[in-house]
Design a protein around this nucleic acid. Structure first.
Lengths: 337, 337
DNA sequence: TCTACCCAGCGACGCGCTTCGACGAAAGAG
DNA sequence: CTCTTTCGTCGAAGCGCGTCGCTGGGTAGA
């Protein structure tokens, strides 16, 4: 494995010159630069990561903490993770994958060992035990998600409050009066994941302004649980004419069940989903949906974290504006029974 | 941030002694060891990753290359990735996430820079361009998946040939004569991903022995494409009494479509899926399925890669035996029309 | 012509750790 | 009681790179 010194010898310059060619931190004559660069190529030189990290106290690594649980919609997590990795490479950084398993200890370990220069944390709960550690840590961090108290932190998230409101607006405009929310798994609410509660709040508040009634039922996402949730919804509120689906996993089963029950979408029941575009497009009915911009969130998180690494200011809270796309699953409310 | 030297001073010993306490590579008296350990705790010392990597030329990092594409069933990928990360931590290692985007160059970069001690590569194609690089590389690697020529490599995979055969056996035993395979997306075959072709081969071969007829149709997994595939299957082979579903995404749509068409499962049509247990259990009918042991594959890959890092021998090819679980979606073939 | 300055490049040091050889003390062999 | 081992510890030499301060030569201004 070639070293800096070998490249230097090969190019007939000193090691420091090669280093400056690589970093561009001092001016180098065109001629030398080209000679050094060709030596680098010829020897297939790649700087040693450890040595570079030691000397510069920068590892060029960003740690990404992903949740361990599987009650969240996994493809979204994966999409964010891949977007983070891709964006980080664009800044010459790599991504270290930390699972939630280690818990807050991972934060300490990675920060203290200098393994990573910064941290991106996903699946943040309202009262997350990692948050105090991040706040005190010397290393920059960015959260994907919004804790109850974001003071002193940098957060990126979809504006879930506005998302809920947007769904309410759309349904109100179509004349719906009774709306049911097919929510996330009960466990998601129990551990106070921010986005689920914020969506609900946003929707309820706006629905109230529109004079709509809202009921909400958690849903595990399996066919069986979805069937149970739907049954209870229509039992309790037979006039329900619109469903907002928060749990992407429930989308498929729900459409199947509605069809089976002879409820036409959107003639009898309108459906709005909060899900990735792909899910909305692959369903049996093209779904009116608010997109979950996973890639965008990953990209933004990386940009913010890079800004902080480089000592620039970063906006404390970035809420991405939701976008509702009208497709075939929503229509005017059926005239009252 | 505390350093080794500070711990040494605090404990009244030399730096090398602290190092040996940490690594256990030389004997240390009980007394000194305890004193050093308490100093470590008191100072909150974590060894600097860069320095350690430089001095020992071991980064304690394993690189994991995941595919960029989204035409594979993503949750399986994610489950493997998390299993790899978790298992690696058990060996005191961390996982670096590389996306396919950088392509083979990533292999070179990571190997040459000493960023990672070893590599685990997912989504291997039959003729994968990363394979020659891995074979020549000085660093250990393990593939999840099986290329056409696994010579000189270490691979872990589900035995997809046996998986196909197992499905054939089960259906033959139930008296089915006409079987249709709802396959992966066409793109998966086009790039010659091993598992898809092997499953099909295994199934076809065994089916022939049982005197069953098999047709195979690729399926993108969306509701629409699944509908198209099903229609063509029953048009071409009206006597089809059993479906083997290879593309997990198609499971939900398919069951919905069968119900809609008035085909009862398993009375009219039996269904066998190759999918994670969770998918089989959450469907509208509990599915007879061959499990995709994502966690097991991740775990095994890490164990093999650790063996190679430590200079031990590793079995060249590990094929996990498939397990078919009979549930509610398969039954005796309907007596001939 | 002399000073002031900038440009290119060099040498040396240090980042924090691992590891090798050495050494004194204690223990066992003859 | 001496000679060899073994044990526990230390000091020093790097690992490969980044960075600081310095220098020799060239340029420009006075």
């Amino acid at each position: 494995m070639a070293t800096l010194a070998e490249v230097a010898r090969h190019a007939g310059v000193s090691a420091s010159t090669v280093s400056y060619v690589l970093s561009g931190k001092r001016s180098i004559s065109e001629e030398t630069r080209l000679r050094v660069e060709s030596s680098i190529r010829e020897l297939g030189y790649h700087p040693n990561a450890g040595a570079r990290a030691l000397a510069s106290s920068r590892s060029h690594i960003i740690a990404l903490m992903v949740p361990l649980r599987t009650d969240m919609y996994v493809p979204v997590m994966m999409e964010i993770a891949i977007a983070v990795a891709t964006a980080a490479r664009g800044f010459g950084h790599d991504v270290l994958l930390l699972t939630g398993e280690e818990g807050p200890e991972a934060v300490r370990r990675v920060a203290a060992s200098g393994l990573a220069d910064a941290m991106i944390v996903m699946d943040v709960e309202l009262e997350d035990e990692r948050v105090p550690l991040l706040r005190e840590s010397a290393r920059p961090s960015v959260l994907i998600g919004l804790p109850a108290d974001p003071a002193g932190l940098t957060c990126v998230d979809l504006d879930f409050g506005a998302t809920g409101a947007l769904c309410a607006d759309h349904l109100a405009q179509l004349g719906h009066r009774d709306v049911a929310v097919v929510g996330e798994a009960a466990a998601v609410y129990q551990r106070h994941t921010g986005f689920a509660e914020r969506t609900l709040d946003g929707l309820r508040t706006r629905a109230k302004e529109h004079g709509m009634r809202v009921i909400h039922r958690p849903c595990e996402g399996s066919y069986e649980s979805t069937a149970g949730v739907l049954a209870r919804i229509f039992e309790e509120r037979p006039d329900t004419s619109a469903l907002v689906v928060q749990n992407e996993a429930a989308v498929g089963p729900m459409l199947a069940l509605l069809r089976q029950q002879g409820r036409a979408v959107p003639e009898d029941v309108s459906v709005v989903a909060i899900c990735p575009e792909q899910v909305a497009l692959q369903a049996s009915v093209q779904l009116t949906s608010v997109a979950l911009p996973a890639q965008e969130m990953g990209r933004q998180a990386v940009e913010l974290v890079m800004a902080k690494i480089e000592g620039r200011e970063a906006a404390p809270v970035t809420l991405l504006p939701p976008q509702l796309t009208v497709r075939a699953s929503t229509g005017p409310a059926p005239s009252a029974a």
